[in-house]
């Protein structure tokens, strides 16, 4: 699958994460992560984002993630929502 526009989901509140996805100029899944707990969980967070993207079979995508200590379930949910929003034709969500 392919996304054609930028969309985001989440918030900057504690225990949440703000995920913004956009079409990538380069090939592959590119994740830029800013996190309060980067040293401790950075690679885990990226892996959760990457795995979620793979479920959608999206190959080229750029992800900006601003993490405030979100747990895996929230990272998955926010990534999914952002992708679903980016996949929609119009910007209105159902």
């Amino acid at each position: 699958m392919k996304i054609n526009k930028t969309a985001s989901s989440g918030s900057m509140e504690s225990s949440d994460i703000m995920i913004t996805v956009s079409p990538a100029k380069e090939k592959g899944i590119i994740i830029e992560l800013v996190s309060d707990v980067e040293e401790l969980f950075g690679s885990k967070i990226k892996k959760v984002i990457r795995d979620t993207i793979k479920e959608f079979e999206i190959e080229n995508i750029k992800v900006m993630a601003n993490d405030k200590g979100a747990l895996d379930y929230a990272i998955r949910a926010r990534t999914k929502t952002a992708i679903l929003r980016a996949l929609k034709e119009c910007s209105l969500n159902e």
């Binding site: 707990v37 040293e39 401790l40 969980f41 950075g42 690679s43 885990k44 747990l71 895996d72």
Partner: peptide
């Protein structure tokens, strides 16, 4: 189980 084990720093 909730947070996962943090990497050792």
């Amino acid at each position: 189980e909730l947070t996962g084990k943090p990497e050792e720093v």
